[in-house]
Write a protein that binds this DNA or RNA. Structure first.
Lengths: 107, 107
DNA sequence: ATTTTATATGAAATAATTATCATATATAAA
DNA sequence: TTTATATATGATAATTATTTCATATAAAAT
């Protein structure tokens, strides 16, 4: 059975969803704008937004036929901290990545 | 192709690996001790420890035939922050979880 | 030197996640 | 009231991650 930590990571720790959160740090955006900025498919984006809303990482309001998404404040802080850590550890993380690639004959 | 953020989440955002990091917050431990505390299999634990080492989330030193693992300081801070966020958002995350369970006929 | 203890490795099996496709809904414009 | 736009949904396909199994290695004890 999943615990709160699992559920947290399920929602938070995914490239596409994290990219959405990164975009929403600066300003609120509607789905169409996110699609353009992130270059992802409409269906994928919609699924990911639903996931982020379920976990209260973002909220949504209607404006005409658009839906406008906004990140919540605590989530924003966490995104900042993770982004910062990733930046500091980039070289190690990449090394780890290279090891994987080697396994597949690349590099 | 994976970027640094992907690699970060690959290592960090996993129940078993996160539990290892949680245990190591207080004090360094050898594999056997982790196994007992976390009740996981030897092979799984070993794979997970390797992953955490590759990404420099933890370090290891030898002591006789044991290997002793220690969390690094910045990782410890991040673990604390995430644990804190999960605690604050637990109710929402659980609600999200319940939605999933419903899908499988439970709840 | 052989056995025991502690841990690591690699391949295969299993499980979970993510992407895709077809279609639905809701609002606004014509 | 039909059409266009914006977004959502659910099922399946494709991909990736996790677990398991068999076996290997390394250090210490006998």
């Amino acid at each position: 059975m999943k615990n709160a930590t699992d559920l947290f990571f399920d929602a938070f720790a995914n490239r596409n969803r994290f990219n959405i959160l990164m975009q929403l740090r600066d300003k609120e955006l509607c789905a169409g704008e996110l699609q353009q900025k992130l270059k992802v498919g409409q269906t994928n984006l919609s699924h990911d937004l639903k996931c982020l809303i379920n976990c209260k990482f973002i909220s949504v309001r209607k404006d005409g036929r658009k839906r406008i998404y906004r990140i919540n404040n605590e989530t924003k802080e966490l995104v900042d901290e993770v982004a910062n850590h990733v930046k500091n550890y980039e070289s190690y993380l990449k090394k780890c990545g290279i090891l994987r690639e080697e396994k597949n004959g690349r590099v």
